[in-house]
Simulated assay, not measured.
Amino acid sequence: MASAVAGLDPLGLSQGNFLVIASLAGVFGGFVRSYSGFGFALAAVPVLCLVMPPVGAIPAVLPVELAIGLLTLPGERSRVAWTALTWLVLGTLVGTPIGVALLSRIPAEQMRIAISLVVILAVVILWRRPRLPLDMLGRPALAVAGLTSGLFNGGTAMGAPPAIIAILGSPLDPRDARATLVAFVAFSAALGTALGIATGLLNEASLGTTLAMAPGAALGGFLGIRIFARTAPESYRGHSLAILLIVSISASGSAAFVLMRSLYY
């Protein structure tokens, strides 16, 4: 493990301290993911980026996100809104290659700050329950949400928010909305993992960080599932919007910290 994560920590933390940070990232990400159905990468990457560069943190979270999806999706399959999921996936398949080509030329931290601010604004609007001008379950809205998710997916680990906002802004039953997000995030993680392998970013070092996060992710996932089971369905939308707001603020704060730190290192 020591050799796997060596060289990823620019602050010179000891191996023990690095493992503590990675475990905390796993617990936070696992809890968010299991409760809301989305957000492991959104929650874990900002924590990891406090002690390692995005090029190491982003690929490391994808196998954990995928593993959680594979474990939870069978139990959610009957509630997935398959038509909505299909249009999200089609949009993502078109947008991801474009995102990889475009966003790889833009500093990831600047993009994460910009995306986080847009997501925060969208959460505030959705919280007020406005009459949206688009049918959020209509094919155009879902395709655009999927396309935008794909564009954001390359190099930022923040590909899911447009799809999350579309589903949370729709009239889907809360349990159906959560199940659909579980399926979409699992697909996005599989696509991201494949791209990570193809580009060489998912390597021994990033897999070492993945393994360091795994126990914490299992603990956080267990807690998230238990709490969701005790939550009233009508509370899901509000709680999930709150989670999205928290992780977006966390992501923008972490990105700003990394940008500030780069001025001195």
Rank of each mutant, 00 (worst) to 15 (best):
R139H: 06
T180F: 00
L181A: 05
Y236A: 05
E65L: 03
W127H: 07
A205F: 01
P215E: 15
H239C: 02
L121S: 13
G196V: 01
L24C: 09
H239V: 10
L24P: 01
L71T: 10
V247H: 08
A101E: 12
T86P: 04
S14E: 06
G192T: 12
L19I: 15
A160C: 11
G216P: 05
I167P: 06
F222A: 09
T96I: 08
V123Q: 04
E234S: 06
G7N: 12
G56A: 15
L73R: 04
G16C: 06
L70W: 00
L245E: 07
L42Y: 11
L70S: 00
S188F: 00
G99W: 03
V94H: 05
V258E: 07
V47F: 09
T199C: 06
A57G: 12
P174E: 09
G150F: 01
L191Q: 04
A194Q: 03
C49E: 06
V27N: 10
I58H: 04
A212G: 13
R129A: 06
A179M: 05
F38V: 00
L151D: 01
Q110W: 10
A41C: 12
I225C: 06
A166L: 08
L102D: 04
A214H: 14
D135C: 02
W82G: 15
I98F: 14
L126V: 01
A84W: 11
S240R: 10
G91M: 14
M136G: 11
L201I: 01
A22R: 02
A44D: 02
Y265F: 07
R175H: 15
G26K: 12
T231E: 09
F152M: 14
P54D: 11
I115T: 00
I113K: 10
W127Y: 03
L93D: 03
L70E: 00
Q15A: 10
V123S: 05
G7P: 09
A41F: 08
G159M: 10
C49H: 04
L70H: 00
G146D: 05
A198C: 03
L211S: 10
L151E: 00
P162H: 07
L259E: 08
S188C: 00
A194C: 03
G29C: 08
G169V: 02
I120F: 08
R105H: 13
P233G: 01
L62W: 02
A217G: 06
G91T: 13
R226P: 09
S206I: 04
D9S: 10
P53A: 10
L263Y: 07
Y265R: 08
H239M: 07
A41Y: 09
S170I: 10
T156M: 10
N203T: 08
T156E: 09
A57K: 11
A2S: 08
I249G: 14
V80K: 09
A4P: 01
I165L: 13
G146A: 09
L42T: 04
